[in-house]
Design a protein around this nucleic acid. Structure first.
Lengths: 253, 253
DNA sequence: CGCAACCTTTGACCCTCGTCAAAAGTGAGC
DNA sequence: GCTCACTTTTGACGAGGGTCAAAGGTTGCG
C-alpha cells in the first residue's frame, strides 16, 4: 500500500537540534526500562534520546490525537493515564485500551498515515513526542532501538489478542477480575501499590473496554465487594484478595 | 526488556546464500504488492527478496508455529489459509484471526522471543520463511522495507482494534455480517470472487473468532439465508445481497 | 464400500447480561 | 455555597444468545 506517506507536522519538527528549555532526557527518566529506549545501552542512549523531540502536556479530557488525524509522531507517556478508543460508522465507541507511564501511543497510524483511533487523557498527563521520521532514522542507526520498537509493537499485538480472549471467551465477572489483576500488575511495575488505586475511567468507559454495560460493571463491583474481594468507594479500589480474584479466572465457566 | 533474544532455528538459517532448488523470488510473486516487500522499488527488491530464506509447506491441520515455540522467523503466506489462536490458563481457545495470501504471521513473538499464539493451516498451504535476524538487517539497509514492516504491524494493530469493536459492541448478526463483508473484500483483492467462496473454518472456529457459540453461528447462517442475503451449503457461501449485509451493520442495535 | 469421527442443523429451555427507570451521590463552575 | 450535569447504584424485567439434546450430513480411512 502506498498510504504510508505523511509523517510530520511541521510544528513538531522545528529546530530538532536546538537546546530545549526543559531537560528532556531518557537517561534520567525513571521509566526508561519500560519505555521505548529500554534495552539501549547507556552510550547509545545519549544519542537515542534525541528521538524525543519535545514534550506535550495533555489536560484531563483532552485528546492527544483523534481518529483521522494526520500521523506525525508516536508518544511515550511520561505521566498520567490515557484511554484509546475507536468509533464505528454508527458512532459506537469501543475503548481499546488504558495506558499509563512508559507505554507507547499512536502506533495505529503508521500503516495508513492517519490515526485510526483516539487517545484521550483521563487525568492531566504529559507525553514525550517522538516524530516518526526521527524514530525511523534512529532505528536504522541503533539496532537495539529497532528491536525495541518492534518488540513494543509486537507486545501491543499480544495485548490485543489477550483482549480478544477476554471479550470473546470470558464471562462478565472473569473480565472484570482479569482487568483488575492486570491493572494491579502494571501499577506495581511502576512503583505504585498493587492493591490500592484510583480508577481513572468511568464505569461506562470500563464497560466499553470489557464489552459490558455500565450497570453490569457497577453490579460486579458491588458483587466483588460483597464477596470480600475488593473494597470500592467510587473510583477508589482496594484489592483485598488478589488470589480470590485470580481464582475467578481459573474457575472457567 | 531483555527477552528479545532468541532468533533463529539453525535449520532455517543454513546456507542462506546458496542457490535454492525452487525459485523463491518476490519479484515474480503475484502477491508482491500486498505482502511485506510492497513498496520496495524494483532495484532494491532484487536484494530485499533475500529475506525469504526458504519456503515451507504446511498441510491442512498442521501448525506453522505453536504458542511457546521459540521465535525464529515471520512468515508470509504464499498460498493457503490459516487461523491463529491463543489459549488461556483454562484451555479455552480464542481464535484471533484468519489469514490468507500475502498476509504475515508470527509477529506476536518479536516482543518475547516466543510465540504467544498458534497458527494452524486450514488448507494445504505454503509460506515464505523470513528469519527475523535477516528481516532486521534488511530493514536497516532498505528504509522502504523498514517502513513496510512497521506498516504491516501497525495494520495488524488496527485490525485487532476492529475485532475488539466487533466483540465488544456488536450483536451476533452484525458480527457475522461484518465478517462476511470483510472476507469478501479480502478475496476480491486477491482476484477471487467477492461473492462466492469456500469457508475454510468450522462453525466452531468461526464462532470462537466472533465470540459466539457454534450453534449461534449456524442459526445465523440459516437466518441470513432465509432473509435472502446469502446462500449457504455447508462451507460454500454465496453472497446474494452484499448491500443488505452491510445494511445490517449500519442498523445498529 | 462401509464405518467412525466429526461437523452442522434445529428445537426447547434457561441464564446472563442488557434495558429501562429512579434515586442518590459527586464534582465543576458561577 | 448552590446549581446543574454527570456518574453511580440498585431494582425489575426481558431478550439475546448459551446450553443441552438429538438427528442427519459429510469426510476420511481402513
Amino acid at each position: 500500500m502506498s498510504a504510508v506517506v505523511a509523517f510530520h507536522k511541521k510544528s513538531e519538527l522545528l529546530n530538532p537540534a536546538q537546546p530545549r528549555k526543559f531537560e528532556v532526557t531518557c537517561t534520567n527518566c525513571n521509566l526508561r526500562e519500560i519505555c521505548l529506549p529500554g534495552g539501549v545501552c547507556l552510550e547509545d542512549l545519549e544519542q537515542v534520546q534525541n528521538i524525543v523531540h519535545s514534550r506535550r502536556r495533555v489536560k484531563r479530557g483532552e485528546s492527544l490525537f483523534a481518529a483521522g488525524d494526520e500521523f506525525s509522531s508516536v508518544y511515550a507517556i511520561r505521566s498520567g493515564f490515557f484511554k484509546t478508543s475507536v468509533v464505528d460508522g454508527e458512532g459506537r465507541e469501543q475503548v481499546t485500551g488504558f495506558f499509563m507511564g512508559g507505554e507507547l501511543l499512536g502506533m495505529d497510524a503508521i500503516g495508513t498515515g492517519r490515526h485510526n483511533g483516539t487517545a484521550v487523557a483521563l487525568e492531566d498527563s504529559e507525553v514525550c513526542v517522538m516524530p516518526y521520521a526521527i524514530v525511523e532514522r534512529m532505528a536504522r542507526d541503533y539496532p537495539q532501538l529497532q528491536r525495541q520498537l518492534h518488540a513494543v509493537m509486537s507486545r501491543e499485538i499480544v495485548r490485543d489478542h489477550g483482549v480478544m480472549m477476554l471479550l470473546g471467551s470470558m464471562r462478565a465477572e472473569e473480565r472484570l477480575a482479569a482487568f483488575l489483576s492486570n491493572l494491579s500488575k502494571r501499577f506495581v511495575r511502576r512503583g505504585y501499590s498493587p492493591s490500592d488505586f484510583h480508577l481513572r475511567m468511568t464505569r461506562e468507559e470500563l464497560g466499553s473496554y470489557l464489552g459490558l454495560k455500565l450497570e453490569t460493571v457497577s453490579r460486579l463491583f458491588s458483587q466483588f465487594q460483597k464477596a470480600g474481594l475488593i473494597a470500592v468507594e467510587q473510583k477508589h479500589v482496594r484489592i483485598l484478595d488478589i488470589a480470590g480474584l485470580e481464582k475467578l479466572l481459573s474457575a472457567a465457566k
